[in-house]
């Protein structure tokens, strides 16, 4: 399979911060790679280097066989970028926005108009297409922005945090749209802070921290590394924490994390493990305020891979 995106040793330094510290990325044709990491990990910087918005200090990259540094204009013809902040012109209607983008891709006036109508239809914006995009909801703007990236049917799509800031419903809708694209055989690089999003959309996930890839694999492989689902227990009485830690440890695969009266541990067999734990807690008459099973989050992946949570990480950057 041909690699549609290949980056080697990308380095980008700002005055105080090293945003990229030698990042390698490979995205084979027709696959989806998710770049997963917390705020400040270097995801957006990586995207900007690959989409010619930023020149890396070191390293090299090719997109659709075109060298990003030697022929940026050639790369621009091969990519569609949809950014973290929906880059639509709010005074223009959806139709005008897409027509403008089409013409700037060099599609010509007539073709740009046809394409704009097609995309509005496809992204469920046909009714709103002739209204200024100022009147759109957040989800609609994101869809319009994504449509902008697809105007010229580029072979490579880059989506920078496509669902950050969207509510649950809009996020779900966006996921459906992206999954449909992927089904159509597009090559896609996607950045996200949500493990669930990467899990649903990507073939392959690269976890990025401090501008470096710290883990790579399919969602299942990462989950295997990080222990899959979590059991979370909050005990009613602080004196029961030790006993609960022992009981939870017995059904868990890794260490038990304790934070005041809240205990968390990874398990491999979610529901049966939860049932066993509840049984033991009942026998020892330990009162429980809350107990549940949840999917691993970016925090869990980070905790396992780096020993820090994603939040601690972003605080570090802020300092």
């Amino acid at each position: 399979m041909v690699d549609m995106i290949r980056a080697r040793g990308l380095v980008k330094r700002y005055k105080e911060v090293t945003a990229l510290a030698g990042l390698d990325l490979t995205v084979p044709e027709g696959t989806v790679l998710a770049l997963l990491g917390p705020n400040g990990a270097g995801k957006t910087t990586a995207v900007r280097c690959l989409t010619t918005l930023l020149v890396p200090d070191e390293g090299s990259a090719e997109v659709a066989g075109v060298d990003v540094l030697a022929d940026p204009q050639g790369v621009r013809r091969k990519i569609g970028l949809s950014g973290q902040y929906a880059a639509v012109d709010e005074y223009l209607t959806g139709f005008e926005n897409l027509t403008m983008v089409g013409r700037l891709y060099g599609l010509g006036k007539a073709r740009s108009r046809t394409r704009a109508r097609e995309l509005l239809e496809r992204f469920d914006l046909a009714d709103a297409g002739d209204r200024p995009s100022k009147t759109y909801s957040g989800g609609m703007r994101r869809r319009l922005d994504l449509a902008g990236a697809l105007v010229a049917e580029p072979p490579v799509l880059v989506l920078d945090e496509p669902t950050t800031g969207l509510d649950v419903r809009a996020r779900q809708q966006m996921w459906d749209v992206i999954r449909e694209l992927v089904g159509g055989g597009a090559t896609l690089l996607l950045t996200t802070q949500y493990l669930e999003e990467a899990d649903r959309l990507a073939d392959d996930i690269v976890v990025i921290d401090h501008g470096l890839a710290i883990a790579q694999g399919t969602a299942d492989e990462l989950k295997a590394q990080t222990g899959g689902e979590r059991i979370e227990v909050v005990v009613a009485d602080a004196r029961h924490v030790e006993a609960t830690r022992r009981l939870l440890g017995a059904v868990a695969v890794g260490d038990v994390q304790v934070e005041e009266r809240s205990l968390t541990a990874a398990v491999t067999d979610g529901a049966p493990a939860l049932r066993r734990l509840l049984g033991h807690l009942e026998e020892e008459q330990i009162g429980v305020l809350d107990v549940g099973l949840r999917r691993p989050t970016l925090d869990d992946v980070f905790l396992t891979l780096t020993g820090r949570t994603a939040d601690e990480k972003s605080e570090e950057v802020a300092r």
Binding site: I79, A87, D89, E90, V101, L104, G106
Partner: peptide
């Protein structure tokens, strides 16, 4: 401020346009 410059800069249009 609105980020639309990034969209323009990612398009294969003239840098002076």
């Amino acid at each position: 401020q609105k980020g639309i410059i990034d969209r323009f800069r990612s398009l294969p249009m003239s840098r002076a346009a």
